[in-house]
Design a protein around this nucleic acid. Structure first.
Length: 677
DNA sequence: GCAAGGTC
C-alpha cells in the first residue's frame, strides 16, 4: 500500500478506530488540541498528529465493515428447503473494501489500537470487526483498548482515553446474535413466502422482524377502516351576528337520535334572536415544540412538507454532509450545554432568516425547550452553518428551512392566546360559540402550525344576538385515519421497532415489495394475504423485538449464552416453518389470489377476461397480458419505471383500460386512435 | 434475488 512520502509512521503509532468520520474528526481534534491534520489514504480520510512524542492516527470507519450472509452455494432458492436453511451457518462477508484496505495499511504500523466507536451494541461489534481485520494482517497485535464515552465532548473524550477499558466481547456478541437471528428468520421466511407465491427475482415477497409487524399495523388499520360502520348523528348549527358574524353549535354537539335533533330544531327554527347567557375567557400559554430528534423531524417533514420519510432522511443526510446541519440520526431532544446556541443565532441573524431570528431575540425564553428523550451521543438536529441558498435544490431548501424554524421556535417564549366560550340561548336551547385569538404569537410567527380555530366578536352577558340562519345537519362518524409515514415512524418508535437509522428504510422496503402504495401508505391485497399468513406467529408482532432486546441485554450482561439463545430461536423458527409448510397449499392459494387481484388492471377489450400485469420470463420486463391466454393473445407493453395503479376507467377511443403511472393517467394501448394527431 | 443494523 502506498503511503505519503512522510516518515512519521515508520515508528510505531497509536491507531484510533472511530465509527464514522465526523467522530474521527472531533476526537482527533480533542486529543491533539486542534493540531490534527487531515490526510488521505486512497479514498479514506484520516487524522494524524503527534502527542508526547508519539504518532497518532485517527481513522473513521463507515459503520459495519462486514455483513452476515450464507455461503454462495446456498444462494439458490430452488433446491434448498427453507427448513434446511435454518441450520446453515452464515459467514461474515467483507462489504466495505476501502475501509478494509485502510485498516490493512495501518495494521503493521500500529503498536496500540484504541477502539473508539459508538458506545452501544452495534458500536462494540463494529469495533471488533475492525480489530479482527487488523489482527489478520498483524498477528502480533496485542495492545488493544476500548475508549468508552457517551458524548463527543472534550471532558468525556479525554477521560475515556486516559481510562481505557477492555473490549466488551459480550456486548459485541449480543449484536452478533441479533444479526444471526434476523438473517435466519428473515431469509427462511422470505424464501418460504416467495416460493409459496411463486414470486421470484425482483418480485419476491419478504418477511422480517421489523418490517412484518410494521406492515401488520398498516393492514390492521386498513381493516378497521374497511370494516368501519358509520353511525349517523345530528348537529344543529347557528350562524349569528353581533358586530360580525360567527357560528355556534348546539351544546349537545353530536345528537345520536334523529327524533331528538328534529324536536330541538322544530323548537328553534323560527327564532330571530338569541341571548348571551355567559362569556368565559381563558388565557393560556402555548409552548413551542421540542428540539428535533430523527423521529420528530421525519414526522414534521411528513406532515408539513408532505415529504416521504426516506426522501427527508436523504436530504438531511446531504445537508449534514455539506456541514449545514448537525448529525441527522439522533434520539436526543435536549440541547447539550456545550451547544453554541448564541453563535448559531448570530449566524442566522445575518442570513435570509434574519426576520425570524429577530423574533427569537426579542422573545427569547430563559432555557431552550427540551423533550423527554435525552441522550448524549449527538445533539438534536439543528443548523450549524448557512448554505448558499441559490445552490440548494427545492427539497434541500425546504428541509433546511424546516430545521432552522424548529431550532428558532425552541428558543422562543411561550405564545399566549385567549379562548372564549360563549353560551347563547335560542328559544331556551343552549348553543356554544368558541373563539380563539392569539395575543402574543411569539414562536407561532416562526414555526408553521395548523390552527382551525377562529376569532369571534366581543360578546357580553345578556346581550342579544341576531340569528342569521339555523341548520340541522346529518353527519356520520368517520373511520380511523390511515397512518401517514410520519405517524408510522412515531408508532414504530413507540413499539421499539427499528432504530432512528432504519425506520425510514423499512418503510421504503415495504413500498419496493409493493406491500404498500401511495404517499400515505395503503396496503395492497398482497400485504393483506402475507399478514394473514403470518398472523398466528410471533414474527408478525412487535413482541419479538422486545424479547430479542431482553435476550441481547442478558447476553451483554453475561447471564445468557449466545449459542443457546440462537439455538432456541432456530428451534422456534423450525416450529413456525413446519406449521407454515403444512398449510403451504392454502397459503399459495391465498397469495396467488391476492397477487392476481393486485395485478389486475382492467378487462380485455377483446375477450372480456381480466388483464394482469406480468413479468416476462425472457427479459424480466413487465407487460400487460390477458388471463385468457393462450386463447386470447392480447398484450400491451408497459413503462418499466414508476408505480402502476389501476383506475377502473376505460379509454373512450379504444376501450382498453386506463392506468396510472406515477400520477399520470394513460391508455395502455400504444396504438390507441386517441393518441394520433 | 433473502433481514436489520451501521454509515456515505
Amino acid at each position: 500500500m502506498l503511503l505519503p512520502s512522510t516518515s512519521w509512521y515508520d515508528d510505531a503509532m497509536k491507531l484510533v478506530i472511530c465509527e464514522k468520520s465526523i467522530a474521527a474528526g472531533r476526537i482527533a481534534n480533542i486529543l491533539s488540541n486542534g493540531k490534527a491534520v487531515l490526510r488521505r489514504l486512497g479514498k479514506m480520510p484520516y487524522y494524524t498528529f503527534t502527542k508526547a512524542g508519539e504518532e497518532w492516527v485517527v481513522l473513521g470507519l463507515k459503520g459495519h465493515i462486514v455483513n452476515l450472509d450464507y455461503p454462495p452455494e446456498f444462494n439458490r432458492w430452488h433446491g434448498i428447503s427453507p427448513l434446511d436453511l435454518i441450520w446453515i451457518e452464515p459467514y461474515k462477508r467483507i462489504t466495505n473494501k476501502a475501509v478494509t484496505d485502510a485498516l490493512k495499511a495501518f495494521a503493521n504500523k500500529a503498536s496500540e489500537v484504541v477502539v473508539a466507536t459508538d458506545f452501544d451494541r452495534e458500536g462494540e461489534l463494529i469495533g471488533l470487526e475492525a480489530i479482527e481485520i487488523l489482527r489478520k494482517h498483524n498477528k502480533n497485535l496485542k495492545n488493544i483498548k476500548r475508549a468508552r464515552f457517551s458524548a463527543l465532548t472534550k471532558s468525556e473524550i479525554l477521560s475515556a482515553f486516559s481510562n481505557p477499558v477492555e473490549i466488551d466481547y459480550n456486548l459485541a456478541k449480543a449484536a452478533e446474535t441479533r444479526q444471526i437471528i434476523d438473517l435466519v428468520w428473515g431469509a427462511t421466511l422470505t424464501r418460504f413466502v416467495s416460493m409459496a407465491a411463486k414470486q421470484y427475482g425482483k418480485e419476491f415477497l419478504s418477511i422480517g422482524r421489523v418490517q412484518s409487524p410494521t406492515l401488520a399495523m398498516i393492514v390492521d388499520r386498513e381493516r378497521q377502516i374497511k370494516e368501519f360502520v358509520p353511525k349517523p348523528y345530528w348537529q344543529i348549527t347557528a350562524t349569528l351576528d353581533r358586530n360580525g358574524k360567527f357560528s355556534a353549535l348546539h351544546k349537545k354537539d353530536r345528537i345520536s337520535s334523529e327524533e331528538e335533533a328534529k324536536r330541538i330544531y322544530e323548537k328553534i327554527k323560527n327564532a330571530r334572536e338569541g341571548i348571551v347567557k355567559s362569556v368565559d375567557k381563558t388565557i393560556q400559554k402555548e409552548r413551542p415544540p421540542c428540539p428535533f430528534d430523527t423521529t420528530s423531524f421525519l414526522s414534521a417533514a411528513s406532515s408539513l412538507l408532505r415529504m416521504s420519510a426516506s426522501k427527508a432522511m436523504e436530504v438531511a443526510e446531504e445537508l449534514y454532509m455539506q456541514g449545514w446541519i448537525s448529525y441527522p440520526r439522533t434520539d436526543n431532544t435536549v440541547y447539550p450545554r456545550s451547544l453554541p446556541i448564541d453563535k448559531t443565532l448570530s449566524l442566522l441573524a445575518n442570513s435570509q432568516f434574519s426576520d425570524l431570528t429577530k423574533v427569537v431575540l426579542e422573545n427569547r425564553r430563559k432555557t431552550p425547550m427540551r423533550g423527554k428523550k435525552e441522550t448524549t451521543d449527538h445533539p438534536p438536529i439543528h443548523p450549524v452553518d448557512i448554505p448558499p441558498f441559490e445552490k440548494l435544490t427545492p427539497e434541500q431548501k425546504n428541509v433546511y428551512t424546516l430545521i432552522v424554524k424548529r431550532f428558532l421556535a425552541t428558543l422562543t417564549k411561550d405564545a399566549t392566546s385567549e379562548t372564549t366560550k360563549a353560551l347563547i340561548e335560542i328559544n331556551e336551547e343552549p348553543f356554544v360559540a368558541e373563539g380563539y385569538r392569539l395575543i402574543e404569537p411569539t414562536w407561532k410567527l416562526i414555526y408553521p402550525v395548523k390552527t382551525g380555530q377562529k376569532e369571534i366578536p366581543e360578546l357580553h352577558e345578556n346581550e342579544r344576538v341576531d340569528v342569521i340562519s339555523l341548520k340541522l345537519l346529518r353527519k356520520e362518524t368517520k373511520p380511523p385515519k390511515r397512518f401517514t409515514q410520519g405517524a408510522l415512524i412515531s408508532q414504530m418508535e413507540k413499539l421499539g421497532l427499528g432504530t432512528k437509522s432504519t425506520r425510514h428504510e423499512i418503510i421504503k422496503k415495504l413500498y419496493s415489495r409493493r406491500y404498500i402504495i401511495g404517499s400515505t401508505p395503503i396496503p395492497t391485497a398482497t400485504a393483506f394475504a402475507v399478514v394473514d399468513t403470518i398472523k398466528p406467529y410471533d414474527i408478525s408482532k412487535p413482541d419479538m423485538t422486545a424479547q430479542l432486546e431482553k435476550d441481547m441485554d442478558e447476553i451483554a450482561e453475561g447471564k445468557k449464552n449466545e449459542n443457546s439463545v440462537i439455538k432456541k430461536s432456530r428451534e422456534m423458527l423450525q416450529k413456525v416453518l413446519k406449521s407454515l409448510e403444512n398449510n403451504k397449499h392454502e397459503i399459495r392459494h391465498s397469495l396467488r389470489k391476492a397477487l392476481t387481484l393486485q395485478n389486475t388492471i382492467g378487462t380485455c377489450p377483446s375477450c372480456g377476461k381480466p388483464l394482469v400485469i406480468r413479468v416476462s420470463s425472457k427479459n424480466k420486463k413487465r407487460f400487460v397480458g390477458c388471463t385468457g391466454y393462450p386463447d386470447c393473445r392480447v398484450t400491451y407493453p408497459l413503462p418499466q419505471k414508476g408505480v402502476i395503479t389501476k383506475t377502473d376507467k376505460k379509454c373512450e377511443y379504444c376501450g382498453a383500460p386506463i392506468i396510472k403511472v406515477g400520477k399520470r393517467e394513460i391508455c395502455i394501448n400504444p396504438n390507441c386512435p386517441g393518441k394520433k394527431g
